[in-house]
Design a protein around this nucleic acid. Structure first.
Ligand SMILES: [Mn+2]
Ligand SMILES: [Mn+2]
Ligand SMILES: [Zn+2]
Ligand SMILES: [Zn+2]
Lengths: 144, 144
DNA sequence: TGTCAAGTGCAATTCTGTTGCAGAAACCAG
DNA sequence: CTGGTTTCTGCAACAGAATTGCACTTGACA
């Protein structure tokens, strides 16, 4: 099922310690269906291990972010949500009217990446983009 | 020089009241060179009018956001920065290494917008995007 | 098994942003 | 110009996500 044990072992090889907290936090992120908040991760792990502190969650997420193993994105709630990047690169369309979230294949971003690379000599790291706007249904409804 | 008086009068016509606070807040945003934080706006106006409260700044910014008159973007500092959209649509490339910020013409986003529109029937409102990555100079330095 | 740097829990704190409410003031009609 | 209505502001308290200092614990490695 989830192949995040590779991630854990990769962490160890870079020099980070393999603690039960880190494994449980990774478990929690991997077992959810994406877009998990720090608080949700905290609660999920606490169900089995009540001593886990929220600061450990944030510190672990910071580590995983720095290593580009998880994405951190605000999808409209006002706080960050986390998702394993190893599940496959993708992006999202979020309707400001109904709140609906659509998935966008990563390939849609390639033309933008290439243009930026060619015209600005800049390597864009677009890992998990939240694009806001209006979905078709809502757009139609607002006319009647 | 700054043409934000049009904005003020437009506000009035939609039914909003023309208060000195709103005018001073708009002045502050317009006279800065873009990317102003709520706290900076607050301090700038307070220099002339010490009674202005930060909540009034946030409420005004919320109004201007809802009317798509200002953009609200986190460019890496962790808090929101505001900029008049009437100054012309553009986006930014932000280097994670050196913190440098480049400007990107809005036309770079058109292919993405069109693809999203055609494939997902979704109207993307990309008004002021912050794209993180690595600039050419930093990329070269990291090899030596 | 012992050493020690890295990591954790705890509690306090920071900081951005929000909210309820009473009084002030913009707007409009007369 | 005046009075009435409604929006807006200032104030103060609050919310809640995220951070930090510090003592203690523990994973890694010899
Ligand atoms: Mn996602
Ligand atoms: Mn800008
Ligand atoms: Zn919708
Ligand atoms: Zn750079």
């Amino acid at each position: 099922m989830s192949h995040h044990h590779e991630i854990v072992e990769a962490l160890q090889q870079i020099g980070y310690r393999l603690t039960p907290q880190r494994m449980m936090i990774l478990d929690a992120i991997a077992s959810g269906d994406g877009h998990t908040s720090a608080e949700e991760i905290h609660e999920a792990v606490r169900a089995a291990y009540p001593y886990l502190d929220i600061s450990t969650v944030y510190r672990t997420l910071g580590l995983l972010k720095a290593l580009h193993l998880v994405s951190e994105t605000d999808l409209g709630s006002g706080h960050a949500q986390y998702e394993l990047l190893s599940k496959g690169l993708h992006h999202h369309l979020i309707c400001r009217e109904c709140g609906g979230i659509l998935d966008v294949d990563n390939s849609f971003l390639n033309p933008l990446r290439q243009a930026i690379d060619q015209e600005h000599d800049f390597h864009a790291e677009i890992e998990h983009l939240a694009i806001f706007g209006m979905c078709n249904a809502c757009n139609a409804n607002l006319r009647g």
